[in-house]
Amino acid sequence: MSESTTATLEAAARNEQSVKLSMQQALNRALDEVLAADPKTVVFGEDCGQLGGVFRITDGLQAKHGETRVFDTPLAESGILGMSVGLAMAGFHPIPEVQFDGFAYPAINQIVCQIARMNYRSRGKLPMPITLRVPSFGGIRAPEHHGESLEALFAHVPGLKVVSPSDPHDAYHLLKYAATRPDPVIFMEPKSRYWQKGDVDTADGGTLTGARIVRPGRHLTLVAWGAMVARCLQVAELAAEDGIDVEVLDLRWLKPIDAEALATSVGKTRRAVVVHEAPLTSGLGAEVAQLITQNCFDTLKAPVERVTGFDVPYPSGDLEDEYIPNIDRILLGIQRVLEYRRG
């Protein structure tokens, strides 16, 4: 059989595994498969059981896997995460949900002081294989505490891993991957991207560690994660109209950050803008900028720019579009980098 025929057959085989799913459907399917494959997995949180989650991520899972494996909890995040610690100690693989980003604050003690360091504290006797799902970021006109970006907070805690998918394919595979890690993973789901459909190759997830180039380009690297990846892809298309070839790098893992991928991309493009929804000061963009500067200082054409939310509490829905980096603000960030000349 010729090489091309083999490749075609493999592609056909892969295509059979390729389905169009929304991120909501992809995450639901991933949880379903994890529950089926691993009897130690338990899924729980506010409205996760009977209702199937306010975003339908756990829809139908209780009916299929039973009330002892998919269940509702009281409205108490400290209890949800405290129970996760106990379940993990007893050999379970908990996949708790805090219903919204801002609801993680009441459970910070359990996340930071217990989940993140129990493995260390017990010299490896009590690992915490917990995947904490956190519907994250803004963009859906929801009330306070429903649109925040806590990645810098989580990433600052030793012992936690932090990941955020940007499309259905990655959501499906990264959730399955996270759920089988021996360490606690904070899984930040971009809630404004739950309903857009995309191709999911269920058979082949590709590389699930590190960052991913979602659009190659020559002149400048846009670094983003979660919901901002889609916006940066739009910006890249618009920049192309002006003759600027933008590379978009989806960071995916926010702890640990793929410094090598940043260095490779910016080493080539020599310019970088990092985009996030979280406030500017002490945001993850600062960490990204430092890693790029550390590794690409000699070749950088300009200081790394940051286009971010503002240093204010996340605003109400009416002001969301002013707060979240929009296309023009990202384009202006690109323009500042392109205009920079060494003094």
Partner: peptide, 10 residues
Amino acid sequence: NTAGIVGTVP
């Protein structure tokens, strides 16, 4: 695509 209970779909 509007099956979420909280918020709107962008």
